[in-house]
Nucleic acid binder design. Sequence first.
DNA 1: TCGGTTTCTGTAACCGTTAACAGAAATCCC
DNA 2: GGGATTTCTGTTAACGGTTACAGAAACCGA
Lengths: 345, 345
Amino acid sequence: MSATTIADVARIAGVSKATVSRVLAGQSQYIREETRQRVLTAIETLGYRPSQAARSLKSKRSYTLGVVGYGLEYYGPSCTIAGVEEEASELGYNLLLYLVRQPETNNVVELLEEMRARYVDGLIWAVPEIGDNHAWLEDPTIQPNIPIVFLSAEPRPHHFVVAINNFNAGLTATRHLIAQGCQHIGLITGPLDWWEARQRKLGWKAALDSVELPRKEGYVVEGNWSATSGEYGLRELLTRHPEIDGVFACNDRMAVGALKVAREMGRRVPEDLAIIGFDDMQDAAYFYPALSTMRQDMVEVGRRAVQELGKVIEAQQSGTPCPPTTLMLEAEIIVRESSLFHKSE
Amino acid sequence: MSATTIADVARIAGVSKATVSRVLAGQSQYIREETRQRVLTAIETLGYRPSQAARSLKSKRSYTLGVVGYGLEYYGPSCTIAGVEEEASELGYNLLLYLVRQPETNNVVELLEEMRARYVDGLIWAVPEIGDNHAWLEDPTIQPNIPIVFLSAEPRPHHFVVAINNFNAGLTATRHLIAQGCQHIGLITGPLDWWEARQRKLGWKAALDSVELPRKEGYVVEGNWSATSGEYGLRELLTRHPEIDGVFACNDRMAVGALKVAREMGRRVPEDLAIIGFDDMQDAAYFYPALSTMRQDMVEVGRRAVQELGKVIEAQQSGTPCPPTTLMLEAEIIVRESSLFHKSE
DNA sequence: TCGGTTTCTGTAACCGTTAACAGAAATCCC
DNA sequence: GGGATTTCTGTTAACGGTTACAGAAACCGA
């Protein structure tokens, strides 16, 4: 039924299949205007749509981007995918979605083969860099042969990367606490096998060192991104060092865990203890007190990644070289109540 | 390079393409065990993968499911997609992801044609039912010709639907407030052109009517799912009817908005005012006070939808009929602090 | 030994496009 | 008017699988 093919169109329009194909291709081909119109109306009346399968069989392209993602149940990753989809549809690409369940150990080879078998034009690799889960990039036996853009990964000279500048963000967050008058600033990090967590920690370190504030071993506790780990983290921090009067929690969920513990331990936030999180997750303003945080625009990260990928694919098609780029987007500080140390005003 | 085709395998194994294809198909074909092994090792040594494009060109299948979604930046929809992906990969399907930006008015015809052109085996329609955005189902000129499972949509006799029983959930939430001793129970609904919002409201209504509690016009205010609208909603409710001592907010975001306003207006939650939300969004327990809510397992909804779809596709392939089904999953009440009216204990 | 099954394998056509090549038509210039 | 260009269009062979059909091989009983 829906099986109207290019041959049907050709017959109706009284031309050859090749001509129809050329009209479809568009690209400034030699086509008399009159025949073009005939073909176009034939297409219109038949409701013809070219078969993508046939097309990509012949041309080795699918006008499809593969997305390898992780953690769709969390806010950041979801936004990333949303951004990717937005830009992809803008550019006329479809999206093939793959979610890995264990980001530390995913079967890259299998995945790449699947992608190749589907002729995806390019890949968005949106799995956070954890441990050595990106080590396959150095493995010479693995040849993706597909343009890939990596998200939230450590910049690498020969690869395309789009990421948030987590170091700067950590710096900014901590400097803000310092500016609020905090003297003893603790850190609840994410798991330190995450590249992003390490960068944020380095930012915290750099900020403290630059103003010569104390930075003891016990000022750092490692969480696992969950609110529960944030609770545990702050409790640990405050029992080890009761003098702590400011905390940078490396994501909002741990931050709200900390908020709860502060309440339970009778520390007023922000008067006794300033807290800032990271992510600006939805409704962060509605915790009590309203959570200060570093906003990272993951939608934009997704969008930019697809833009880059689009360029690479184009370049590859036309044979022009396209040198790898690294895009670092800055996070933006959102000051709400939880970090207003001196409750000025 | 990666262009090892079925012909290569055939040559190496010393058989014909047809034989290789048959080995690949598996299905209890007549193949001598010895030749099967020869083919298998040839495949192995060459690292051969069948081209999906060629395959679906011939067989009119793509082993791909289309997912039409909305609102990936929110918790529920994200979980749904995650569930869909999980089950799909379990069943050996790939996922083609489409996100609509205006759920009320999406170009269904265009979308369906795109899906057909890609030979998707089936469709997961995860766009909430708003206004008449599902009316195309009654339009005889639109013939999807693809099996579709609808999520979070009103049950329809001739279609496959998987949804949360929002009516029951509304009933449960409200009955819980009644059980806590609330006498005047207000409602902050979602936009009433959403089917889900209407169902929850009906549940609230039914609960109140069954115990003959007052239910005035002014007890209902319509929000738009945002926290801000929850703020506005509760403010409105309390100024109109100061006697209100319990509120069912139809999602958690509006609920936390209400939490904030209650604080600002000096109403203690839950002592003066019990509040229950809907969704059990991440870290709902970390608001202040910890938010009671109705948990809907959207991951499961996604999973079940794919299971259903898989069955339909199988049935369709083998020609056996597959009568439409409607799956209603129940939400689960999660009682935390915000609704413990009498702070018993 | 031979015909009749059953089991196995090869041949060839087809799926719906694209693109290299060549041939036809139109245009131009002398 | 005729040859050289330029513009347009058709013929045909892929692309990499699947599958109907037929033929070969093996097995069986008479």
